[in-house]
Design a protein around this nucleic acid. Structure first.
Lengths: 237, 237
DNA sequence: GGGCGGTTGATTGTATACAATTTGGCATCG
DNA sequence: CGATGCCAAATTGTATACAATCAACCGCCC
């Protein structure tokens, strides 16, 4: 769709072995919320869906479990992760812990061209915000995350970049589960403020804004233990 | 060996499927430097060694590649990771970025019992430092890393804990490759200073010490580009 | 009628078999 | 004698087959 954002995901090996393509496809489906948390991903089904053997399906699911997007339970199967409120809190705590540092590093070495890329992403994000439809909503979610990912890539640290990719993907899952308003919208303005602070080289301020931004996202969640998990209990009560 | 430290690694599922045991065994071998960076890990060999099929061997190697301890090259095989100087720098940059935050969080909620655990680990570390022999050296390396891992576990954030495990393991690889003096020794005193700072609740100071500690470890590396990697260039010049 | 145990079906765990790709050597040719 | 191209061995990529485990259902016994 937008080549600038997709470029962020081109950190893999040039040649992708089948399993990785499947992994990427499923991850995208999870992050874009086409697959609901808790959904069972049976190896056979995945294999049939992608026209490959269980071997590759299994490998893809294993890979996703390392990223925390899928839980595989021994002898039970793989399920789209269903983060507990506690897990959700830890994900955002982790983001508060690392994102200021990433932002500082990125801001320190950022080029005008890169600032322009950030602004383009911001515009794209705004455009999608005003569009209607599921597909636009998905793209908006993705663009919103890509802002943080782009900063991570500008930091020049591949390890932190990979970690951020994991955190952003898991955040998306959490928002899908516990998000209340269709709110990621309010994040848009904050992204703009952060860019502005970076541009005038006010790193301190940018970090401050980033922390608030992350907390705002988290505040908008309803993290009460509504574990409908055991659906039996829903009828027992 | 020492149950306190081993407890740190018991964050996995209670039931381990074969591949995970193999993964753990190989990881231990890499981290303890019984396997040199660059060593080829053929699927058949690994399978024969552990008396399992290639399927499980392959799964274990895949898992290790997600942790950055093994590189799998398409159609070429798996090799113990051979971090470039640039990768090494990024690993330590990542540690400087996250460890102060982890330390702050851990110090904030630490209990007297946990402080005692840290001290015990420190004593164990000192004991091993004065012993002779390869086996003691390995245990010392492990104990040194366990100090950081224990702090991460005390932070109460499983996500950061897992990330730290990856960083510590990869640090060990880097030290194996680029370490000069048999130096992790000097780290011992610094660990003690950090504990002391935590104990008198001087978090600011503890973080400061931690940053210096990490930098000291990195300073002791010889990160010059001796990439015999592209061996062509060795003759072109 | 309700709890209990075995049995069946489905799903995962593991091993083996086959296909594709790479690597090194050998023969051939310039 | 050196370079090039092809062939064979070895290794990885993928699919299939078999074993083990789990879940649900049914019948049985209390």
């Amino acid at each position: 769709m937008n080549s600038t954002a997709d470029a962020l995901h081109t950190i893999n090996n040039p040649t992708e072995t089948g399993a990785q393509q499947i992994r990427d496809a499923i991850r995208e489906a999870i992050v874009e919320r086409r697959l609901s948390p808790g959904t069972k991903l049976s190896e056979s089904d995945v294999g049939n869906l992608f026209k490959v053997s269980r071997t590759l399906a299994r490998a893809a699911l294993q890979a996703l479990s390392y990223e925390g997007l899928v839980n595989v339970e021994k002898n039970r199967g793989a399920f789209v992760a269903y983060p507990s409120p506690e897990e959700a809190r830890q994900i955002f705590a982790a983001r508060r812990l690392v994102e200021p540092g990433i932002l500082s590093e990125a801001a320190r070495k950022i080029t005008p061209s890169q600032i322009r890329q950030l602004k383009e992403l911001l515009i794209e994000e705004g455009r999608l915000m005003n569009e209607r439809g599921q597909s636009a909503r998905r793209a908006e979610i993705k663009a919103s995350g890509d802002f943080h990912l782009m900063l991570a890539s500008f930091s020049g640290n591949l390890i932190m970049q990979r970690f951020m990719e994991e955190l952003i993907a898991r955040s998306s899952l959490v928002i899908a589960l516990y998000g209340q308003s269709s709110v990621s919208s309010c994040g848009h303005a904050e992204h703009g403020d952060i860019i502005a602070a970076i541009e005038r080289n006010d790193i301190e301020r940018a970090c401050h804004l980033m922390l608030h931004h992350i907390s705002h996202i988290e505040t908008d969640l309803d993290l009460r233990e509504r574990k409908s998990f055991g659906l039996k209990e829903a009828f027992e009560v």
